[in-house]
Write a protein that binds this DNA or RNA. Structure first.
Length: 774
DNA sequence: ACTCGGGCTAAGC
DNA sequence: GCTTAGCCCGAGT
């Protein structure tokens, strides 16, 4: 176990108390008190009356006299005089006690807020608390609200993440010019600004809500900076492509919008949306002819006494013993216990015995009466549906019962410790695989992840879209590789960022895609396919918007997955023990140079600090952060220029830095993203610096010839992320089957370019190795 | 011996 | 899940 840091550890990164950390990481240690359990006895009416009479007779506070008084001694013998006093207090001072409780609660809440504040404020530029009193600092954030300049004073509340600070525009004391102050308070909400000023105490002169949690201090503003610029006017009239078919007398082309002028048309956006909602509504409800057939999931107490049928596979049986036995039927993740009661002649003895002798995984339908569980039925009552059981009357087999399994399913269920073989994470294909709870769990978690992401995107006004990956023709903007399909030249595209960028250009503020992505496997150097989540989004003021979005996206996904797929995680845990992911709910963002500092403090000299961290250093940093802060999820931002792609916008604020970020999970980089360069001059000059030319520029030529709004994005391998939630080491196993299939498919198609040269990555790598040899 | 103020938690809602 | 009330504790009167 990692050594616990001292409470109230102060560092570059966070200030967080032991208690708070425990809450954040869900790592609360349960201390079992070494005392016997005290049973509480309610005061009876007699006892109460005796106490009241005693107080009447002997006076308030004379508890021991009351205790001794023979007229009450019998009734009150179970209670001590301290009990008398407590009871009396409870009866007569209940209002006062309630008030006390309320105020204590308030204090607790306040303390919690203070802890949160302390925790958050130490992070980079968000650090604004009393310890900074009278210091000149700069903060930045989104304008949450403004009070206009009245009587020479006004204010702007800046919001960064969930934290806010009131920034005072004091024109009376000449801290800021009246016109500037007025201009600022006229800024639209959501503008991104930076203020420089002196931290001070709030003054009563500032009206408005003081409820913000950072209101213990305000910033007396003396400098104002705007961040980011607004979108230039569109180069193409968008009305033309928005015209209806009737007007243009031409069939509407249904395909991916690719021309800039295509994209803004509402028709295109509608189509994309329709596609996504069709995907979401693809769940089909299955009707069955038997009106009494119910999904196991739906059987509950409300159906008590009703005769119904359920069906499912046999999960476990209890043999008929003392004329009673049971079968647990499992349908999906739900199960119900079906009681075989031969004692009361509900079912024949022989039938009951036969059923309990069926192989597990046999598929059955059972008809019976919904009833409450009886203590006569032994065995675990922990199954989900154990509020009710079914008293079986009739038994139907469905299909053939399963022949004896060719592989013991228990083998597949065994943990690594037993089978001495690493867990394979992929699509279960053998029967024994799919029957396995762990594999079903993985499927469900991955499916749930996709759903949760779609919901999250949707709630943040993202448009889901699909881009083409397999494209006819000899060239696409950024081909991953070229292949030959039945003699026709074809391209397999990388994750086509271009299409998403064009959607952005068209006015979709934010787009995402969840779908197959092709890339070169870093280890085998072969083509692999994975489930990618790709995002491009408008940046209004600062690329930090993307960083914050990524953070909230992941935290939301982690939370929801752990909540919705509890059973699946447990099933995996049971067989492949892993440590639950530790992650913060917010503020897991670390500037790159702070990361360097942490490494250096721990005695690791980063080899090429200007090129970023190598995998070894990344792992070390992950370890440090985990040990010191107990989070395995964090984001490094303001990453070095040299490590970023040529199309990443370079940081205007930080020397040698780019507006990019890396997301780490369990010490491994799982995602890179950043703001895209939209200034053609900057792009070409940087490409030239990096010796990137011609086709390697891909679609960036096109991106740069139309005026793009500021935007940024990222892409991530979803399988990898979900897999890492329940694995601790190698995650490259995720999607193994997909990779194999893709590689085989490409080989079958014959990887050839127009001039007959093998242009596959594999071949190019071979060539590269050869060149090196020379 | 008792009060005051408050913490902990079983029990009840 | 949240509140109440029974039980307990330490410091002070």
């Amino acid at each position: 176990m990692a050594s616990k840091p001292n409470s109230e550890t102060t560092s570059l990164l966070f200030t967080v108390s032991e208690e708070r950390r425990a809450v954040l990481t869900g790592n609360v240690e349960v201390v079992t008190p070494n005392t016997t359990v005290v049973k509480k006895k309610k005061w009876t009416k007699e006892e109460n009356e005796a106490l009241e009479a005693g107080v009447e007779k002997h006076g308030f506070g004379k508890w021991s006299e009351i205790k001794k008084d023979p007229s009450y001694a019998d009734i009150l013998s179970e209670r001590t005089n301290v009990d008398f006093k407590d009871k009396f207090r409870n009866v007569h001072d209940s209002e006062k006690l309630a008030l006390q409780r309320a105020s204590r609660k308030e204090v607790k809440k306040q303390k919690e807020i203070e802890r949160r504040l302390a925790f958050a404020t130490a992070v980079a530029e968000a650090a604004v608390n009393e310890s900074l009193m009278d210091r000149r600092i700069t903060v930045r954030g989104v304008v949450a609200s403004t009070t206009h300049v009245i009587k020479e004073i006004g204010s702007v509340v800046l919001k960064e993440g969930e934290f806010t600070i009131k920034c005072v525009l004091n024109t009376a004391d000449n801290l800021i010019r009246p016109q500037d102050a007025k201009d600022v308070t006229n800024f639209a909400e959501h503008s991104y600004l930076a203020f420089q000023g002196v931290v001070s105490l709030p003054s009563t002169r500032i009206k408005g809500s003081m409820k913000n949690i950072s209101q213990k201090v305000v910033l007396q503003v003396s400098q104002i900076y705007g961040i980011g610029k607004t979108l230039p006017p569109a180069p193409v009239e968008t009305d033309t492509s928005a015209r209806s078919e009737a007007v243009i007398e031409k069939d509407m082309e249904v395909g991916e919008p690719s021309r800039v002028s295509d994209v803004p048309a509402p028709a295109n956006q509608k189509r994309v949306q329709a596609f996504v909602s069709a995907l979401a509504e693809a769940a089909v409800s299955i009707e069955d002819s038997d009106p009494n057939l119910f999904p196991v999931e739906k059987v509950d107490e409300s159906m008590f006494g009703r005769k119904i049928s359920v069906r499912g596979e046999v999960a476990s049986t209890i043999h008929v013993h003392r004329r009673i036995g049971s079968v647990v039927l499992k349908e999906g993740e739900f199960s119900i216990r079906c009681v075989l009661n031969t004692a009361d002649d509900l079912i024949g003895l022989q039938d009951a015995k036969d059923v309990t002798n069926l192989a597990e995984h046999s598929y059955l339908a059972l008809e019976g009466v919904v009833s409450l569980p009886d203590t006569r039925v032994q065995g675990s009552m922990k199954d989900l549906s154990q509020q009710v059981v079914i008293l079986v009357g009739k038994i139907y087999g469905i299909g053939k019962t399963l022949p004896p399994a060719p592989v013991e399913t228990n083998t597949a269920a065994r943990s690594e410790a037993f089978v001495e073989k690493p867990m394979e994470v992929g699509v279960p294909s053998r029967v024994s695989d799919v029957l396995e709870l762990v594999n079903q769990g993985i499927l469900r978690i991955q499916s749930c992840a996709e759903l949760v992401l779609r919901e999250f995107f949707s709630s943040r006004k993202f448009i889901g879209m699909r881009t083409q990956k397999l494209i006819a023709g000899s060239s696409s903007g950024a081909p991953f590789c070229k292949l030959n399909w039945e003699g026709y030249p074809t391209c397999l595209a990388h994750s086509p960022q271009f299409a998403r960028q064009m959607a952005i250009r068209g006015g979709s503020e934010r787009v995402f895609e969840i779908g197959p992505v092709f890339k070169e496997d870093s280890i085998s150097k072969q083509l692999c396919e994975y489930t990618g989540v790709d995002v491009e989004m408008r940046i209004d003021r600062h690329y930090f918007e993307v960083v914050e979005f990524v953070e909230s996206l992941f935290v939301d996904m982690f939370n929801k997955l752990h909540e919705k797929c509890k059973e699946d995680f447990q099933a995996i845990q049971n067989q492949h023990p892993y440590e639950k992911l530790k992650y913060f709910q917010f503020n897991a963002k670390v500037p790159f140079d702070v990361g360097l500092q942490l490494l250096e403090n721990a005695g690791t000299k980063v080899i090429h600090p200007l090129r970023g961290l190598n995998p070894e250093e990344e792992r070390k940093l992950g370890k440090i952060v985990l040990e010191e802060y107990e989070t395995e999820f964090y984001i490094l931002y303001d990453c070095p220029s040299a490590g970023s792609t040529f199309y990443t916008k370079q940081s205007p604020d930080v020397h040698h830095s780019s507006n990019s970020f890396d997301v780490f999970l369990r010490g491994k980089k799982i995602l890179s993203g950043g703001e895209r360069e939209i200034d053609p001059d900057a792009l070409y000059s940087r490409a030239a610096d990096l010796k990137i030319s011609g086709t390697d520029l891909g679609d960036w030529d096109s991106v740069c010839t139309c005026t793009m709004p500021r935007h940024g994005g990222f892409g991530v391998d979803l399988n990898q992320v979900t897999t890492m939630l329940f694995s601790t080491n190698d995650t490259d196993k995720a999607g193994v089957d997909g990779k194999e299939a893709a590689v085989k498919g490409i080989e079958a198609a014959g990887v050839q370019s127009k001039d007959g040269k093998d242009t596959s990555r594999k071949a190019r790598n071979k060539a590269r190795v050869k060149d090196k040899g020379k």
